[in-house]
């Protein structure tokens, strides 16, 4: 019974997406919308496969920027969250600043980064860091604060010091929340890199998109979007896999 339900729960979204794609295909095929305005799903897929050899270098560049930025963002935000959790002064001082940093539109900052840091990898990585940073810090902070108060007292009654309380209890207790933030950050990271690339550069999916858009090759624009979606989802799944490995106690008994 439960198995059937889980199959059903997974099938519903898949069927819905297939339905939407089918309708889209039919609309374009029937000529209601012209092909050069909206390519059909099938066109997008064939173009995508066709251009794959020529865009692998762009995929590689974007992935490199996204992953570099993501790793730096993780390092920085873990350090910052730990500081904020341990020192109320730091928390009080930085919390408003963090929120403000998220209200500045990336589309405004990205050109500034290009002016400051040139057309190399650096400005793209900066954009990625900026978009990934916030969800990780917020979720990790929430997780660190989520430790059961009695458990905290128990650790104290066993004379655990601050560091022991942190790595034996607080940090493991925060992992679930941390990974939720990390998954969001991972999906943002690809888009962040692409936005950075729109402002100029030698390679990357964003650069490629700008080029094909300027030559009105809409099917190639859509193909790049497809690639971006796939990359983001793969990264999401990768984080999910890491989470499963890092939190064996969360795996249900099979």
């Amino acid at each position: 019974m439960r198995k059937w339900e889980s199959i059903r729960d997974k099938a519903i979204p898949v069927l819905f997406i297939i339905l939407v794609i089918l309708i889209w295909q039919l609309i374009v095929d029937s000529g209601i919308i012209a092909r050069y305005i909206l390519p059909s799903p099938w066109d997008v897929i064939t173009v995508c496969i066709a251009i794959l050899p020529e865009i692998t270098v762009h995929i590689y560049t974007t992935l490199q920027e996204a992953l570099t930025g993501l790793l730096i963002a993780i390092t920085l935000s873990v350090l910052l969250a730990i500081l904020m959790d341990n020192f109320t002064v730091v928390k009080k001082a930085l919390q408003p600043l963090l929120v403000v940093s998220q209200t500045i539109p990336i589309m405004v900052l990205a050109p500034l980064f290009v002016m400051w840091f040139g057309f190399g990898m650096l400005p793209k990585v900066m954009v990625v860091i900026l978009v990934c940073f916030f969800p990780i810090v917020v979720s990790l902070l929430e997780g660190l604060g989520s430790l059961d108060k009695d458990l905290l007292n128990l650790m104290k009654s066993m004379k655990a010091n601050r560091w022991q309380i942190f790595y034996l209890a607080k940090f493991p207790a925060s992992l679930g929340s941390f990974f939720s933030g990390l998954k969001i950050a991972a999906t943002y990271s690809i888009i962040g890199a692409v936005i950075g690339e729109w402002m100029g550069g030698k390679a990357g999916l964003g650069v490629y998109m700008t080029r094909v858009r300027q030559s009105f090759a809409l099917d190639k624009v859509f193909a790049s979007i497809l690639v971006i979606i796939i990359l983001s989802m793969l990264l999401f799944k990768l984080i999910e896999l890491i989470q499963l490995l890092a939190m064996p106690w969360k795996r249900a008994i099979k």
Binding site: D148, D150, L151, L154, P172, W249
Partner: peptide
């Protein structure tokens, strides 16, 4: 003293 709480308070991750 050794203190056992009303809840078992085992660490789920250990």
């Amino acid at each position: 003293v050794s203190y056992m709480y009303q809840k078992d308070l085992l660490l789920p991750w250990k």
